[in-house]
Each structure stands twice: as C-alpha cells, then as structure tokens.
Design a protein around this nucleic acid. Structure first.
Length: 274
DNA sequence: AGACGTACCTGACCGC
DNA sequence: TGCGGTCAGGTACGTC
C-alpha cells in the first residue's frame, strides 16, 4: 500500500530513468483507472521531454518541459515497472516508451490509482493539492504547526493523522507505527494531546518515515521499487499486522491489540500507549 | 467546516 | 476442489 515512503522510493527510481528523456510513445489499454483518462492525455505526453520527477504527499509529479505536469496517484495497488521483460499482465494499463528505449509500465490490479495532466503553474490550486497539509519531512512541519492542527479536531488521533489535510503522506501503516513509538493511544481525541505528546508524535512521525524511506518502503502485497526490488521496512514493524503478538516495548508481556477505527484496522499496545 | 459512513476494485485468504 | 464471504485501504463524496 503506497504511503509516503513507498511513493518516495518509486520517485527516486523513476527520476534517473525519466529525466531528460523524451516520451515517444503512450499506450492506454483501457479508458480509465479510478477515473476516465482525460481526452488529450496522450497528446499532452507524446513528444514531451521530462524535466524533473518529484513527490508531493502520495502523488508522483512528473514535470514536463512543455509546462505541464503528469500527476500519478498509485492508489492501493499501483506500481511503476521499469524495463519489464515479461509478457503483458492483464493489469498493465499504461505503457510509456522513452527516447532512451526504456519502457515504463503502470500496473494496478485494483485500479484505485489515477493520472491527470495539469499545467504546472496551476498545481498548487488544483483540487488534489489545494488543501493538502505540510510535507512531514519539510521545515513547514513543526511541533507547533502539528499542535495547532490537532487542537482543532475532536476525532481520534488515529483518524486525524490519516487526514491528508493535517499532514500529507501518512497512511494506515505509518500512523499505527508512529503512535506506538510516541506512546499515544490511537483512540485519544486529537485535541486532548498535550505539548509533550505532540512533540513526541512529531519526532516519531519523522523518524519512522526516514527509516522507512531508507528501507525502500514496506512490501506487503504490491509495493516494489521500479526495478522490482522489494522494500523491507515491514520487518521493522512494531505493531502493524502484529495482532496477538508480544509487544516489543513492554518486556514482551503484553499483546498487540487490533481495533477498528473509521473502517480501518488499528494495531496498538494498550499497555504502552496512553 | 468537521465528522462520519460508503463507494470504488480485485486478489488473497478463510471456513465449510 | 470449489465456492461464497470477508478483508485490505486512499480518496472523493454525500449527509448531518
């Protein structure tokens, strides 16, 4: 499930392959992913030279020298595959051919992903980006800004951290892990966290994300580097998908619980997280 | 405006 | 072996 570290890993893989190359061919094998492709999708990509690959939240931004930006969200199961040698998979929906003769495939069995091409200078005001929260690894994300944002909300801290308007890029896995590391009960109302707890949460979020990026993200089912390599942060999970297993923090005495919050599984240790 | 529930989609997995 | 049910979850959208 691509969250920030997984998307970052994909972007770092795509950058050297795409930048400075001309897009020579675009093949769409279906009319839509999550949404229909825009009518001029192929026309806007064809012939364009890639300037730079960036990430914002969980979006891949591919800036073109034409002034347009090709935006991709991987949804739940999206993958970018570089130089695939194997036969076409039924879920290979898009193929991009580059002047370098490299080829990139977009594969997405669940089709929760989406792509859109917009003018680069309108990106900030685009509905997908307009009200996104700060990048958690940027200087704009501070204990103070987080505290102010959490104080405004009365929902559980777990669901508030999943809200991309509060902080951009966290998903279910890294929210569970960050709350565990910070020792905060996921059921706590967001606005009841005190300054010390917000500070711990802020640094836990940053530390977990940095570790996960260094590990190339987490491979559960779908995530891969563009080369097909696995991420390996899943081996460092403290709570995610560890229901019934011993807690790694409290001397292995207590078990990891699993509850449902907002229709999503939350994993935590009720002894260590208050 | 925030909180909450639901839809979207397919593959993996479980129980019978 | 096969089949139906359930779960996984990021985002948008409708409702209150």
């Amino acid at each position: 499930m691509p969250e920030l570290p997984e998307v970052e890993t994909v972007c770092r893989g795509l950058g050297p392959v795409l930048e400075k190359q001309r897009i020579e061919g675009v093949i769409l094998r279906r009319p839509n992913l999550r949404y229909p492709f825009q009518k001029d999708f192929i026309r806007l990509l064809q012939g364009a030279v890639v300037e730079k690959v960036e990430r914002r939240a969980k979006y891949i931004l591919i800036h073109l020298q034409t002034g347009m930006t090709w935006v991709t969200h991987l949804g739940m199961s999206g993958r970018m595959i570089l130089g695939a040698k194997e036969a076409l998979n039924p879920h290979d929906h898009v193929t991009i051919k580059l002047s370098s003769k490299d080829e990139i495939r977009y594969r997405d069995p669940r089709r929760f992903g989406y792509m859109v091409i917009v003018k680069r200078d309108t990106l900030k005001g685009h509905p997908y980006f307009k009200s996104l929260g700060p990048e958690p690894l940027s200087a704009e994300f501070t204990p103070k800004t987080l505290e102010a944002s959490l104080a405004l909300r009365k929902g559980s801290i777990k669901t508030v951290l999943l809200n991309q308007h509060v902080v951009a890029g966290l998903g279910n896995i890294y929210v569970c892990e960050a709350l565990f590391e910070a020792g905060i009960d996921p059921r706590r109302a967001s606005h009841t966290l005190d300054e010390t707890q917000v500070k711990r949460l802020h640094s836990a979020i940053q530390r977990i994300l940095k570790c996960a990026i260094a590990a190339g993200g987490s491979t559960l089912q779908d995530h891969r580097h563009v080369t097909g390599e696995l991420g390996y942060f899943q081996y460092q999970f403290s709570v995610y998908d560890r229901e019934g297993k011993k807690c790694k923090k409290c001397n292995l005495q207590f078990q990891i619980d699993r509850i449902n919050q907002g229709g999503r599984s939350t994993f935590f240790c009720s002894h260590c997280q208050k």
